[in-house]
């Protein structure tokens, strides 16, 4: 783990510049796909913080995605709060919930933790359907168009959405990189490798895992808010569904966990596949995209579990001088 200063990283700067130029060259449907890639990339970075760096496999990130999405919608529909503030409300709310749930759920290890996160996601989904008055129930909420303005984050064209998403993406990437190269990241790595040994060197498991869980929740919430703003319609089955949790897991896994570009790369590969599947076969049956996902998941777990970025970096890694 060599300390990098991300702002001095040439690849990142190039990415930044190219990224800002994208809407000039890409328009229409392709731009929509680019926006979706960014959206799911952000969610995957969020998942990566707890399940990649943190090593705790979460199948319930959909809960925080939903909190972000519903916060934006409810904030506006019930309280007239503009979207920008709604995003922040979502983030704060997610952090608080993550703190509370974390105290309970993070005591568990391995499959127990995963099962619990699954249960949490399902519980939230049930609650969202139950409290119909507030959330619109199973039918969901749609976001009425108000005006083309910055603070309400509604635009007649797509490209402002792109830039909004891009800013969020940069935040997510920087967060991920900072974690990886910090003491906090080293603590998480220790916990990942051996909990007992980590404790024996003075690392507080609960506090460290909790921090990761909260950060993951905040980033996921951000992506959920973005989803609500861009898609204009949300419902519990979609934004709080188990399928969503699986999707972001797969994206991060395919791209490569704990890497700077992995989650984005994973999204760049899987989202177009989803779009293509939906475009050609969506009218026949639903479930085809998830079917494709599941096949990819099985394949990746069996043959490529480190993810694309890690596989490539091993191919081109410099041999380390060893003296035994």
């Amino acid at each position: 783990m060599i300390r990098e200063n991300i702002l001095k990283d040439r690849t990142f700067l190039i990415f930044l510049i190219l990224g800002l130029m994208v809407p000039f060259f890409i328009k229409g449907y392709a731009l929509k796909v680019a926006i979706m890639i960014i959206l799911w990339g952000i969610a995957a970075y969020g998942w990566d913080v707890i399940s990649g760096h943190g090593g705790q496999l979460s199948l319930g990130q959909a809960a925080f995605f939903a909190i972000g999405a519903y916060s934006v919608n409810i904030a506006y529909l019930s309280f007239g709060i503009p979207s920008l503030i709604g995003i922040i409300i979502g983030i704060v709310f997610s952090a608080i919930i993550a703190l509370a749930i974390g105290l309970v759920v993070l005591r568990l290890r391995g499959p127990y933790f995963t099962l619990c996160t699954l249960a949490v996601g399902e519980i939230l989904r049930t609650l969202l359907i139950y409290f119909k008055g507030f959330t619109g129930g199973a039918v969901g909420l749609s976001f009425p168009y108000q005006e083309h303005s910055f603070i309400s984050m509604q635009y007649t064209y797509d490209y402002p959405y792109y830039y909004l998403g891009f800013v969020m993406l940069i935040i997510a990437i920087i967060t991920s990189t900072v974690i990886k190269n910090s003491s906090f990241g080293l603590k998480l790595a220790a916990i990942r490798n051996d909990c007992d040994a980590a404790e024996s060197v003075g690392i507080n498991l609960m506090m460290t895992k909790s921090k990761a869980f909260i950060i993951a929740a905040m980033i996921t919430s951000m992506s959920g808010s973005f989803y609500a703003i861009f898609m204009n319609y949300i419902d519990p089955g979609t934004v709080c569904g188990f399928g969503l949790s699986v999707q972001i897991l797969l994206i991060a896994l395919v791209g490569g966990r704990r890497t700077k570009w992995g989650p984005l790369l994973g999204a760049a590969i899987l989202i177009p596949i989803t779009e293509l599947t939906n475009a050609y076969f969506g009218h026949i049956r639903s479930g085809l995209p998830m079917l494709v996902y599941s096949i990819i998941l099985i394949f990746v777990v069996l043959y490529a579990s480190e993810g694309i970025v890690n596989i490539f970096s091993k191919r081109f890694a410099k041999p380390i001088k060893e003296e035994i």
């Binding site: 783990m1 003491s183 080293l186 603590k187 790595a189 220790a190 490798n193 040994a197 060197v201 690392i203």
Partner: peptide
């Protein structure tokens, strides 16, 4: 119980990490 995926230096640094936040 060394940290298998970490390097020698990282392992030792873990021994220091609870008292000092500065990775370098």
């Amino acid at each position: 119980k060394s940290f298998k995926e970490l390097t020698v230096l990282e392992n030792i640094a873990c021994g220091l990490i609870s008292k000092n936040k500065h990775l370098k």
